[in-house]
Amino acid sequence: MSKRPEIAGHESASAGFSLVAVLVFMLIVSATVVPFAVTAKTRLMIANNEVEQERLSLLAEGLGNVVASELTGGSGTKTFPLDSTPAACRSGAFSFDVRVQDHGGLIDLNAADDHLLALGFASLGFEQQTSQALAEAAMRFRDNAKLFAGQPRPRSSVGPPEDKQAPFESVSELQEFSALASVPLQSLHAVFTVNSKRGTISADHAPNRLRAVLASGTSASVVQAAADASAYTVDVVVRRDGSGITGEAGFIIEKSPTNPTAFSRVSRSPVTAAAALPAVVGATGCEVLFGTEAAQILRGWNS
């Protein structure tokens, strides 16, 4: 027996209401759950990227030690350019960028005379007058007050608020100078050092920008033949293809005075951001840069 029209209509309306109620409920659940799911996925991706970056940074740190050992052992001075010119290699999905700077090719803030200091500041883009003022301010900052006893000491407009009257302990102290506060620390480290302990600079190991300024003037403090290096900056950048993730390590090493093949880390160096580094053309095999044993480890790292 067929249902009466009014009963059938009522059941149809109830079914329609139930369907709408279910759809509304599903929308509410989706609106609540989906943001949590997206947030969880995003956090997972960020965590994975952070883990990968830490992994690559540890690899860069280890390879930096390998390079330091080669430099103090003597073989690295033939393998790597010593003027911050990049050397690169590839292993599987990873590429490696190494830069080595002999501190004999930098200007020592505590040993250089005012003329050599002025050349260093000129390489940063300062005009001659400002460069000379910065050089004089650096000498007053580092030197004992007795050297200037009885001399008027007007405050330099380009110098620091106060003179230290003791040797520079770090290149970063230059950022206390008003004219240098905005100069990136990487740029200062590319010109100056406190680790060479020499009043001369080896022009053939100077970075390109500094070398060009040294060649434009004459100074007895600028020599061509490089002396035996006592300190190096070692920077290593590791990239994984297609990921945009990099690992970086940079530090300054000094040779041991008692063991000619040993070294010690004296400080960290500010590694230039990988994105700012130009691509290196003509990468060699990693055996050439890091030796056979390290290259085998890198191949295992890829597997």
Rank of each mutant, 00 (worst) to 15 (best):
P5Q: 12
I7T: 15
A8R: 14
S14N: 14
S14R: 13
G16M: 11
T39M: 14
A40P: 01
L44D: 13
I46K: 10
N49F: 13
E50L: 12
Q53W: 08
L59R: 05
E61W: 07
E61H: 10
G62S: 11
G76C: 03
K78A: 15
P81W: 08
A87T: 10
C89K: 02
C89I: 03
D97E: 15
Q101W: 02
G104C: 06
L109K: 00
D113M: 05
D113W: 00
L116A: 02
A118M: 09
L119A: 14
A122W: 02
A122L: 08
L124F: 05
F126P: 00
E136P: 08
F141P: 00
N144I: 07
N144Q: 12
K146A: 15
F148Y: 12
A149Y: 12
P152D: 13
P152C: 12
S156K: 04
V158H: 01
P160W: 06
P167G: 04
E173K: 06
L174H: 03
Q175D: 07
A181I: 09
V183T: 09
V183S: 05
P184W: 09
Q186W: 09
H189C: 06
T193S: 09
V194Y: 00
D204V: 15
H205M: 12
A206L: 09
G217L: 14
G217T: 13
S219R: 03
S221L: 10
V222Q: 01
A226H: 04
A227P: 13
S230K: 09
S230T: 12
A231Q: 04
T233V: 06
V234D: 00
V236S: 01
V236Y: 01
V238R: 01
R240W: 08
R240H: 13
G242T: 04
S243R: 12
G244R: 09
A249R: 02
G250P: 01
E254F: 05
P260N: 13
T261Y: 11
A262W: 12
R268P: 11
V271K: 01
V280G: 03
V281T: 15
V281C: 14
V281S: 15
F290R: 02
I297D: 10
G300K: 14
N302P: 06
